[in-house]
Write a protein that binds this DNA or RNA. Structure first.
Lengths: 337, 337
DNA sequence: GCCTAGTCTGCAAACCATTGCGACGTTTCG
DNA sequence: CGAAACGTCGCAATGGTTTGCAGACTAGGC
């Protein structure tokens, strides 16, 4: 059925080893034989059996990607980046969705570990202990998470938060709430800490941490009422989906954005430009985040001797849209008039 | 390094073949030996080498999924469904993104074909001829596309369009535009034809086909002006992203939705509830579409003898939100008052 | 007590590509 | 002219698992 190297060898009148070499190391075989083999291979439509190859070489040419939720546009974009970069490097990618469940996450990694040369874990929810264990079983790169000395691509959460707070301060806000994501999320802990740090930095700024919510629209709807009760005039959300939920809940309750409350999201996923009002959001280079993860992983896989950077920090940029403004409307503009 | 069946055999004091049987066909080995082997395997942390297994069985335990654009929420949801269903069936899934490019699509299928037991092609953009060729090289299931006698999971486009048109007719619209997607998209051709068919069916209805646009927000922005110039009071869009673009462009031009123009999308992706106004959309069971594709594929793979259904048609349901209403505002309500 | 049927288990081939080593032939240099 | 060096290629082992076949051993029936 399938055509093997033996068939090619027979047609080309050479041995199987010569076929292998003609394809893998062309300079080690005489030009004349090379063309004979190549022609035979093309004629028969030969492609090496990857299972057999990986059995002997120990490498698969595949990488794995585990994300908490494929339906979250943030992870969808990262996945796109991973896939595109892997493809140009000649790697195929396994995808796995953990549904935000740390247990499934570890299981998925173990299932895939034997079929891949390495894995990218995006925003893993597992504990440091579990990650350390997994890292021993398989080459790992973390994206949007730091843990021990596992190679990592992160986002500059502190700087993102700083930009968001600076923006809100400039608009006159003095009481800012933070609506957090899953407690299992490292970036959530980072962002929460960064907001608190900003509060400590500015004497006239009060920060209210509202706690943890589901990183979906539903979580934002739940958080909305807490924001209003907290007396904050602005809220920073763990991610854009949560921010959408806030906008929705505020609309339901007749609270005007940004006149009554300003809302800042995080991630700047593509749809954030489309809500009404458009969402001010801490922009992350989504697709590039995926690419960076693959780059680091492939470097590790191809020459494990020289790990030049174990840590790559991506820059962020606040994108201001209509969901933020001065509390009570634009006094500055009114004074100018 | 890695523990093989030979190690287990040595520890358990049996032969390699007995190890294999104890794990794969427990009833073919004596209970006493079975527990010995199982204990040894567990003690050593043995897991069968999948490459070696697939080398001999010819099966991989993997499936592939090709989609035109992972960042499109429609495909993200389908991917989620595929992944979740495959996982519970013990299959791992390769993901590939063709960037809406038919050439890449075929290439991706060929690259993956050797490593999978079968593939799901979601909304493939390739021609029927190319698909037929690919189907000969690999077990294929099409989702949201019909082509020859390749097994297929489709969406009832005709019914969806019927519902959308009926809704608009009920609101009093008599001139309806269709803003189409890629010409390479089968479902776009289906939907365009269905709209025309509805026009032919209702004597008092005029249908305007505006042609083909990119299935992104940018495509809708481009289409917006054509809608207005066409004199239509309502527009049906190929997908929700395109509809978002329409909403955006109408806002830019000060055109009120739904008072001046009604907008209907297709797919009912999660964010459609969040735009302002909320998007009326032909709802598709997104995640289930992916599941259905995998179900069909696995059935084909596991017993290729009896293909019970080569065609599965998923039901659709129009979801009405605020983007549709009577032209010029709600006269019916005003008359009641 | 012997034969048969049946239950377990081991042997060895097979799957397919890769690669170290050695053989062979040719060239080059001393 | 001899020997070393080099280029080219085949042999055979290797990787880990599955499975047909045959052998060994047990149990049961006459």
């Amino acid at each position: 059925m399938a055509v093997s190297a033996r068939d090619v060898a027979r047609v080309a009148g050479v041995s199987v080893s010569t076929v292998s070499r003609a394809l893998a190391r062309p300079h080690e075989v005489a030009p004349a034989t090379r063309v004979k083999v190549l022609e035979a291979a093309r004629g028969l439509g030969y492609t090496p059996n990857l299972a057999a190859r990986s059995l002997i070489t120990g490498r698969t040419g595949n990488i794995g990607l585990v994300v908490p939720d494929l339906e979250n546009p943030f992870f969808a974009s990262v996945t796109k980046g991973v896939q595109s970069r892997a493809r140009t490097a000649g790697y195929a990618v396994f995808i796995a969705d953990s549904d935000e469940d740390p247990t499934q996450e570890a299981e998925l990694v173990r299932n895939l570990a034997k079929q891949v040369d390495g894995m990218v874990l995006c925003s893993p929810r597992a504990t440091d202990a579990v990650l350390a264990e997994l890292a021993r079983e398989c080459v790992l790169v973390l994206v949007n998470r730091e843990s021990g000395d596992i190679p990592t691509v992160t986002i500059d959460n502190h700087e993102g938060t700083r930009q968001a707070v600076a923006h809100l301060l400039a608009l006159g806000h003095r009481r800012i709430a933070y609506a957090g994501g899953p407690t299992t999320s490292w970036s959530n802990r980072q962002r929460a800490a960064a907001v608190e740090a900003q509060g400590a930095l500015h004497g006239d700024l009060e920060v209210v941490n509202l706690g943890s919510f589901q990183p979906y629209v539903s979580g934002g709807i739940a958080a909305g009422d807490l924001v209003l009760a907290s007396g904050a005039t602005a809220v920073i959300a763990y991610n854009d989906l949560l921010a959408f939920g806030l906008l929705e809940r505020f609309r339901q309750r007749g609270v005007r954005v940004p006149d009554d409350v300003s809302v800042v999201g995080t991630d700047n996923i593509p749809v954030s430009a489309l809500t009404s009002p458009g969402l001010t959001s801490v922009g992350i280079p989504l697709v590039n985040t995926g690419r960076a993860g693959v780059d680091m992983l492939l470097h590790l896989v191809r020459d494990p001797s020289t790990p030049p950077t174990h840590h790559h920090d991506l820059t962020v940029q606040l994108v201001v849209r209509a969901s933020t403004g001065p509390h009570g409307g634009d006094v500055a503009l009114r004074q100018l008039a």
